[in-house]
Simulated scan of single mutants.
Amino acid sequence: MFAVGSVAACAASGPAGVQPDGINDPYETQNRRVHAFNRGLDRAIVRPAAIGYSSVLPDEIEDSVGNFARNLGEPSVVVNSLLQGDLQGAGISTVRFVTNSVLGIFGLFDVATDFRLPQHDTDFGETLFVWGVGEGAYLELPVLGPSTSRRATGMVVDLFTNPLSYVVDSPERYYGTVAAAASGLSRRGRFSDTVDSILYESADSYAQARLIWLQNRRFELGDTGAAADIDPFALDTEGF
């Protein structure tokens, strides 16, 4: 963990400083190429598959698949909460996992929320934030979409932070991955109008997606200092 944190700290510094609009995007040229690839992939495959998925399956089944995916991710949330020193968050996620696994039929139903146990979500990217690692440069990753160097490092580490991956045999260990992918399709289908307006109706879909993602991520982390640096009117002059 220390080695990963050190690497992330180096990556987070980036080759260039934060721009006046509060966005650190030294790799914009490469990022725009990846964005064009992701946009084409969405148009040709992801969007049609997502709309078809949401149209065919009842909402109840889509919700159950999403609940199942989130429940299998709870152990990773516990680990990251402990690494952040958040004992309350770790306790809530532990109780949620046990409750939904037993009473919610392996997590297909979110019984814990009915018991007023709120969902607590975190990842290793947030762990790095708590440890003081900087946000780093903005990145757009193939297929995965918007990210930062800190978030990308966290995504790699999160492949190994779920204890279930070490105790569950194949092919069962991949159920969570399949469910998470299906849940992603469900979200893409349900919020198709919003996503389409960003990707296909805005004057500069790259700048629009970058601004929205960074604002949302910084809000999730409670990174008020960084969020305050973003110029809310940045899109008025970008991409025109």
Rank of each mutant, 00 (worst) to 15 (best):
G73Q: 04
R150G: 05
F68K: 09
P142L: 00
R39F: 14
D231A: 04
V4R: 12
G89V: 12
S147G: 07
E28D: 13
D204W: 05
S81R: 13
G154E: 01
P118F: 03
G125H: 03
R116S: 15
P232C: 00
T113N: 09
R218G: 06
V195N: 02
F160Y: 11
I212A: 03
E140P: 05
Q84T: 10
D42S: 03
G145T: 00
V77Y: 06
L108T: 07
S170T: 15
G91H: 14
T224Q: 14
F160L: 08
E201R: 01
E172T: 06
A203H: 15
H35Y: 08
P48N: 02
E74M: 05
Y175L: 14
I212V: 04
A90D: 05
A203E: 15
I198G: 00
R210D: 00
G132W: 03
F97G: 13
Y53M: 01
A11N: 07
L214K: 07
T148A: 01
A50M: 00
R150V: 03
S197M: 04
N24I: 00
A209Y: 00
L221P: 10
S205N: 03
D169I: 07
G154H: 02
F97R: 11
T224A: 15
A9H: 13
F124C: 05
N24H: 12
V130Q: 12
A8P: 04
P20G: 02
V98E: 04
V65P: 05
S149P: 10
D229G: 02
T99C: 08
F124L: 02
V77M: 08
D63E: 15
V157E: 10
P15T: 11
V195P: 00
L57A: 02
S13V: 14
I51P: 07
G239I: 10
A49M: 04
L211Q: 08
M155H: 13
T237Y: 10
Y53L: 01
G66E: 06
L72H: 13
V46T: 14
S192Q: 15
W213Y: 12
V156G: 08
D223W: 09
